[in-house]
Protein backbone atom coordinates (compact mmCIF):
# COMPACT_ATOMS: atom_id res chain seq x y z
CA UNK A 1 0.00 0.00 0.00
CA UNK A 2 1.13 3.54 -0.64
CA UNK A 3 2.06 5.72 2.31
CA UNK A 4 -0.71 8.24 1.57
CA UNK A 5 -4.26 7.42 0.50
CA UNK A 6 -6.88 9.93 -0.59
CA UNK A 7 -10.35 9.55 0.95
CA UNK A 8 -13.82 10.51 -0.24
CA UNK A 9 -15.73 11.83 2.79
CA UNK A 10 -15.58 15.40 1.55
CA UNK A 11 -17.28 14.41 -1.72
CA UNK A 12 -20.31 12.95 -0.01
CA UNK A 13 -20.94 15.51 2.69
CA UNK A 14 -19.46 13.41 5.46
CA UNK A 15 -18.10 15.80 8.03
CA UNK A 16 -17.71 14.59 11.56
CA UNK A 17 -17.90 17.94 13.28
CA UNK A 18 -20.14 20.26 11.30
CA UNK A 19 -23.44 19.87 9.45
CA UNK A 20 -22.86 23.28 7.88
CA UNK A 21 -19.54 22.18 6.41
CA UNK A 22 -21.29 19.03 5.19
CA UNK A 23 -23.78 21.10 3.26
CA UNK A 24 -21.08 23.37 1.83
CA UNK A 25 -19.27 20.25 0.62
CA UNK A 26 -22.45 18.80 -0.85
CA UNK A 27 -22.90 22.01 -2.84
CA UNK A 28 -19.28 22.17 -3.92
CA UNK A 29 -19.16 18.57 -5.10
CA UNK A 30 -22.61 18.16 -6.60
CA UNK A 31 -20.99 18.14 -10.01
CA UNK A 32 -18.79 15.13 -10.75
CA UNK A 33 -16.31 17.38 -12.56
CA UNK A 34 -15.38 18.89 -9.19
CA UNK A 35 -14.68 15.44 -7.74
CA UNK A 36 -12.44 14.56 -10.68
CA UNK A 37 -10.66 17.89 -10.43
CA UNK A 38 -9.94 17.29 -6.75
CA UNK A 39 -8.75 13.73 -7.40
CA UNK A 40 -6.37 15.19 -9.97
CA UNK A 41 -5.02 17.63 -7.35
CA UNK A 42 -4.23 14.64 -5.16
CA UNK A 43 -2.51 12.90 -8.06
CA UNK A 44 -0.48 16.06 -8.70
CA UNK A 45 0.55 15.86 -5.05
CA UNK A 46 1.77 12.31 -5.62
CA UNK A 47 -1.16 10.36 -4.17
CA UNK A 48 -2.15 7.55 -6.51
CA UNK A 49 -4.72 5.68 -4.44
CA UNK A 50 -8.31 6.70 -3.88
CA UNK A 51 -10.14 4.95 -1.05
CA UNK A 52 -13.88 5.34 -1.49
CA UNK A 53 -17.27 3.99 -0.52
CA UNK A 54 -19.41 2.23 -3.08
CA UNK A 55 -21.64 5.30 -3.34
CA UNK A 56 -23.71 5.43 -6.55
CA UNK A 57 -21.79 8.50 -7.74
CA UNK A 58 -18.48 6.64 -7.67
CA UNK A 59 -19.76 4.65 -10.67
CA UNK A 60 -19.57 7.82 -12.79
CA UNK A 61 -16.07 8.57 -11.51
CA UNK A 62 -15.05 5.03 -12.47
CA UNK A 63 -16.48 5.57 -15.99
CA UNK A 64 -14.31 8.66 -16.31
CA UNK A 65 -11.22 6.82 -15.09
CA UNK A 66 -11.82 3.99 -17.57
CA UNK A 67 -12.26 6.40 -20.44
CA UNK A 68 -8.89 8.07 -19.70
CA UNK A 69 -6.58 5.07 -19.40
CA UNK A 70 -3.36 6.94 -20.09
CA UNK A 71 -4.02 9.59 -17.47
CA UNK A 72 -4.93 7.04 -14.78
CA UNK A 73 -2.51 4.30 -15.74
CA UNK A 74 -1.09 3.92 -12.23
CA UNK A 75 -4.26 4.86 -10.42
CA UNK A 76 -5.72 2.51 -7.84
CA UNK A 77 -9.01 2.46 -6.00
CA UNK A 78 -9.67 0.83 -2.64
CA UNK A 79 -13.44 0.22 -2.58
CA UNK A 80 -15.14 0.25 0.82
CA UNK A 81 -18.45 -1.53 0.97
CA UNK A 82 -21.29 -1.24 1.50
CA UNK A 83 -22.28 2.44 1.33
CA UNK A 84 -24.00 2.07 4.68
CA UNK A 85 -26.57 4.86 4.60
CA UNK A 86 -28.10 3.50 1.43
CA UNK A 87 -28.89 0.30 3.31
CA UNK A 88 -29.63 1.89 6.69
CA UNK A 89 -32.29 4.16 5.22
CA UNK A 90 -33.64 1.22 3.24
CA UNK A 91 -33.89 -0.90 6.40
CA UNK A 92 -35.88 1.87 8.11
CA UNK A 93 -38.21 1.99 5.12
CA UNK A 94 -38.37 -1.63 3.99
CA UNK A 95 -37.16 -3.73 6.91
CA UNK A 96 -34.24 -6.16 6.79
CA UNK A 97 -35.86 -8.71 4.47
CA UNK A 98 -37.26 -5.95 2.24
CA UNK A 99 -33.80 -4.42 1.90
CA UNK A 100 -32.26 -7.71 0.84
CA UNK A 101 -35.04 -8.14 -1.72
CA UNK A 102 -34.35 -4.63 -3.00
CA UNK A 103 -30.59 -4.90 -3.33
CA UNK A 104 -29.69 -8.50 -4.00
CA UNK A 105 -29.68 -9.16 -7.76
CA UNK A 106 -33.19 -9.96 -8.96
CA UNK A 107 -32.84 -13.35 -10.53
CA UNK A 108 -31.21 -14.82 -7.49
CA UNK A 109 -33.86 -13.61 -5.09
CA UNK A 110 -36.64 -14.50 -7.47
CA UNK A 111 -35.52 -18.06 -7.77
CA UNK A 112 -34.86 -18.38 -4.07
CA UNK A 113 -38.16 -16.96 -2.96
CA UNK A 114 -39.86 -19.39 -5.27
CA UNK A 115 -38.08 -22.15 -3.42
CA UNK A 116 -39.12 -20.66 -0.12
CA UNK A 117 -37.32 -18.67 2.49
CA UNK A 118 -36.04 -21.86 4.11
CA UNK A 119 -33.63 -22.54 1.28
CA UNK A 120 -32.25 -19.08 1.49
CA UNK A 121 -31.75 -19.29 5.21
CA UNK A 122 -29.06 -21.86 4.70
CA UNK A 123 -27.04 -19.75 2.34
CA UNK A 124 -26.27 -16.37 3.87
CA UNK A 125 -22.68 -16.36 2.73
CA UNK A 126 -23.80 -16.75 -0.90
CA UNK A 127 -26.05 -13.74 -0.43
CA UNK A 128 -23.07 -11.82 0.91
CA UNK A 129 -20.98 -12.88 -2.08
CA UNK A 130 -23.70 -11.73 -4.49
CA UNK A 131 -23.91 -8.39 -2.71
CA UNK A 132 -20.11 -7.99 -2.92
CA UNK A 133 -20.23 -8.73 -6.64
CA UNK A 134 -23.06 -6.23 -7.12
CA UNK A 135 -21.05 -3.54 -5.31
CA UNK A 136 -17.88 -4.39 -7.25
CA UNK A 137 -19.48 -4.08 -10.68
CA UNK A 138 -18.74 -0.37 -10.93
CA UNK A 139 -14.97 -1.00 -10.58
CA UNK A 140 -14.50 -3.36 -13.54
CA UNK A 141 -11.13 -2.93 -15.27
CA UNK A 142 -9.88 -0.65 -12.51
CA UNK A 143 -7.07 -1.74 -10.19
CA UNK A 144 -8.52 -2.47 -6.75
CA UNK A 145 -5.63 -3.98 -4.77
CA UNK A 146 -7.50 -3.83 -1.44
CA UNK A 147 -11.24 -4.16 -0.91
CA UNK A 148 -12.65 -3.06 2.44
CA UNK A 149 -15.63 -3.88 4.58
CA UNK A 150 -17.09 -0.67 6.07
CA UNK A 151 -16.84 -0.14 9.80
CA UNK A 152 -20.57 -0.24 10.48
CA UNK A 153 -20.71 -3.81 9.17
CA UNK A 154 -17.32 -4.92 10.52
CA UNK A 155 -18.16 -3.63 13.98
CA UNK A 156 -21.72 -4.97 13.91
CA UNK A 157 -20.37 -8.45 13.10
CA UNK A 158 -17.59 -8.04 15.65
CA UNK A 159 -20.06 -7.28 18.45
CA UNK A 160 -22.32 -10.14 17.41
CA UNK A 161 -19.32 -12.47 17.36
CA UNK A 162 -19.96 -13.44 13.73
CA UNK A 163 -16.33 -14.34 13.09
CA UNK A 164 -17.24 -16.77 10.33
CA UNK A 165 -18.82 -13.99 8.26
CA UNK A 166 -15.81 -11.68 8.65
CA UNK A 167 -13.48 -14.50 7.63
CA UNK A 168 -15.76 -15.40 4.72
CA UNK A 169 -15.48 -11.82 3.43
CA UNK A 170 -11.70 -12.06 3.67
CA UNK A 171 -11.57 -15.38 1.84
CA UNK A 172 -14.03 -14.42 -0.88
CA UNK A 173 -12.21 -11.20 -1.75
CA UNK A 174 -8.96 -13.15 -2.11
CA UNK A 175 -10.51 -15.95 -4.11
CA UNK A 176 -12.77 -14.02 -6.46
CA UNK A 177 -10.85 -10.76 -6.91
CA UNK A 178 -7.34 -12.01 -6.23
CA UNK A 179 -6.70 -8.99 -4.04
CA UNK A 180 -6.35 -8.23 -0.35
CA UNK A 181 -9.32 -7.81 1.95
CA UNK A 182 -9.29 -5.02 4.48
CA UNK A 183 -11.47 -4.10 7.42
CA UNK A 184 -12.49 -0.64 8.58
CA UNK A 185 -13.26 -0.53 12.28
CA UNK A 186 -13.64 1.77 15.26
CA UNK A 187 -12.55 -1.10 17.52
CA UNK A 188 -9.11 -2.02 16.22
CA UNK A 189 -7.69 -3.94 19.22
CA UNK A 190 -10.81 -6.11 19.57
CA UNK A 191 -11.00 -6.79 15.83
CA UNK A 192 -7.34 -7.75 15.63
CA UNK A 193 -7.80 -10.23 18.50
CA UNK A 194 -10.75 -11.83 16.77
CA UNK A 195 -9.13 -12.01 13.32
CA UNK A 196 -5.91 -13.46 14.71
CA UNK A 197 -7.82 -16.12 16.62
CA UNK A 198 -9.63 -17.02 13.41
CA UNK A 199 -6.31 -17.47 11.61
CA UNK A 200 -6.26 -14.24 9.60
CA UNK A 201 -2.64 -13.21 9.91
CA UNK A 202 -1.30 -9.68 9.59
CA UNK A 203 -4.68 -8.24 8.50
CA UNK A 204 -5.16 -4.86 6.84
CA UNK A 205 -7.11 -2.69 9.26
CA UNK A 206 -8.17 0.88 8.65
CA UNK A 207 -9.03 2.64 11.89
CA UNK A 208 -9.30 6.00 13.65
CA UNK A 209 -5.97 7.06 15.07
CA UNK A 210 -5.37 10.60 16.20
CA UNK A 211 -3.66 12.67 18.85
CA UNK A 212 -7.00 13.51 20.48
CA UNK A 213 -7.89 9.82 20.97
CA UNK A 214 -11.17 10.45 19.12
CA UNK A 215 -13.06 7.27 18.13
CA UNK A 216 -10.28 5.05 19.50
CA UNK A 217 -12.43 2.58 21.45
CA UNK A 218 -10.76 1.35 24.58
CA UNK A 219 -8.42 4.35 24.60
CA UNK A 220 -5.40 5.78 22.84
CA UNK A 221 -2.86 3.96 25.01
CA UNK A 222 -4.31 0.58 24.09
CA UNK A 223 -3.99 1.44 20.38
CA UNK A 224 -0.40 2.58 20.85
CA UNK A 225 0.46 -0.68 22.61
CA UNK A 226 -1.12 -2.73 19.82
CA UNK A 227 0.84 -0.78 17.21
CA UNK A 228 4.09 -1.38 19.09
CA UNK A 229 3.62 -5.05 19.85
CA UNK A 230 1.38 -6.71 17.26
CA UNK A 231 1.56 -7.77 13.64
CA UNK A 232 -1.01 -5.77 11.71
CA UNK A 233 -1.02 -3.55 8.63
CA UNK A 234 -2.69 -0.35 9.78
CA UNK A 235 -4.17 2.49 7.78
CA UNK A 236 -4.75 5.48 10.05
CA UNK A 237 -7.91 7.46 9.35
CA UNK A 238 -9.54 10.45 11.05
CA UNK A 239 -6.01 11.63 11.82
CA UNK A 240 -7.23 15.24 12.17
CA UNK A 241 -10.11 14.06 14.44
CA UNK A 242 -12.55 15.84 12.13
CA UNK A 243 -10.55 19.06 12.37
CA UNK A 244 -10.21 19.15 16.15
CA UNK A 245 -6.40 18.93 15.97
CA UNK A 246 -4.24 21.43 14.05
CA UNK A 247 -2.81 19.63 10.98
CA UNK A 248 0.83 19.93 12.01
CA UNK A 249 0.28 18.40 15.47
CA UNK A 250 -1.99 15.75 14.00
CA UNK A 251 0.45 14.58 11.34
CA UNK A 252 3.44 14.76 13.67
CA UNK A 253 1.70 12.38 16.07
CA UNK A 254 0.75 9.91 13.34
CA UNK A 255 4.20 9.85 11.77
CA UNK A 256 5.77 9.21 15.18
CA UNK A 257 3.83 5.95 15.62
CA UNK A 258 5.27 2.59 14.58
CA UNK A 259 3.51 0.10 12.30
CA UNK A 260 1.27 2.54 10.45
CA UNK A 261 1.62 1.55 6.83
CA UNK A 262 -0.65 4.21 5.34
CA UNK A 263 -2.36 7.44 6.22
CA UNK A 264 -5.80 8.16 4.81
CA UNK A 265 -6.98 11.74 4.51
CA UNK A 266 -9.49 13.75 2.56
CA UNK A 267 -9.52 17.42 1.60
CA UNK A 268 -11.49 19.69 -0.70
CA UNK A 269 -8.90 22.16 -1.93
CA UNK A 270 -5.55 21.90 -3.67
CA UNK A 271 -3.99 23.95 -0.86
CA UNK A 272 -5.13 21.58 1.89
CA UNK A 273 -4.14 18.51 -0.10
CA UNK A 274 -0.65 19.85 -0.70
CA UNK A 275 -0.30 20.93 2.91
CA UNK A 276 -1.22 17.53 4.33
CA UNK A 277 0.95 15.62 1.87
CA UNK A 278 3.99 17.77 2.52
CA UNK A 279 3.48 17.55 6.29
CA UNK A 280 3.46 13.75 6.04
CA UNK A 281 6.66 13.80 3.99
CA UNK A 282 8.28 16.26 6.37
CA UNK A 283 7.55 14.26 9.53
CA UNK A 284 8.28 10.93 7.86
CA UNK A 285 11.74 12.22 7.03
CA UNK A 286 12.21 13.53 10.53
CA UNK A 287 11.21 10.27 12.22
CA UNK A 288 13.19 8.12 9.79
CA UNK A 289 16.19 10.29 10.57
CA UNK A 290 15.52 9.83 14.32
CA UNK A 291 15.30 6.06 13.92
CA UNK A 292 18.49 5.88 11.85
CA UNK A 293 20.41 8.07 14.25
CA UNK A 294 19.40 5.81 17.13
CA UNK A 295 21.23 2.86 15.57
Amino acid sequence: MERILFGDNQFFAVNHISDEKSRAQAIKFQNDVEIIKTLDYSIDAGVHTFMCTTHDRIATICDYIRSHPAKYEDYKIYPCMPYAHKYANAVTELGIVGTIKEYVPNNFMGSLFKGGVAIMSKDYLSIMELMIDAEMKMFRNIKTPVIFLQNVITDLLLGLGMTEVLVAFHKYIRKKYDTEAGFITMNMPKLLDLLEKAGVENPIICTSINKAGFRMSGGKELYETVLKTRKVRVIAMQVLAGGAIPPKDAIKYICSLPNIESILFGASSRGNINETVSLIHEFDKQYQYDILSNF
Binding site: H16, I17, V152, G159, M186, R215, S217, A241, G242, G243
Partner: peptide, 15 residues
Protein backbone atom coordinates in the same frame (compact mmCIF):
# COMPACT_ATOMS: atom_id res chain seq x y z
CA UNK B 1 -17.27 23.88 20.02
CA UNK B 2 -17.25 20.43 18.48
CA UNK B 3 -18.45 17.01 19.53
CA UNK B 4 -14.79 16.02 19.86
CA UNK B 5 -14.61 18.40 22.86
CA UNK B 6 -17.41 16.59 24.66
CA UNK B 7 -17.07 12.93 23.70
CA UNK B 8 -15.65 10.32 26.01
CA UNK B 9 -14.28 7.19 24.41
CA UNK B 10 -16.45 4.13 24.68
CA UNK B 11 -15.17 0.56 25.07
CA UNK B 12 -16.95 -0.58 21.95
CA UNK B 13 -18.16 1.69 19.15
CA UNK B 14 -21.01 1.04 16.74
CA UNK B 15 -22.79 3.80 14.80
Amino acid sequence: KYITDFTDNVDFYLR
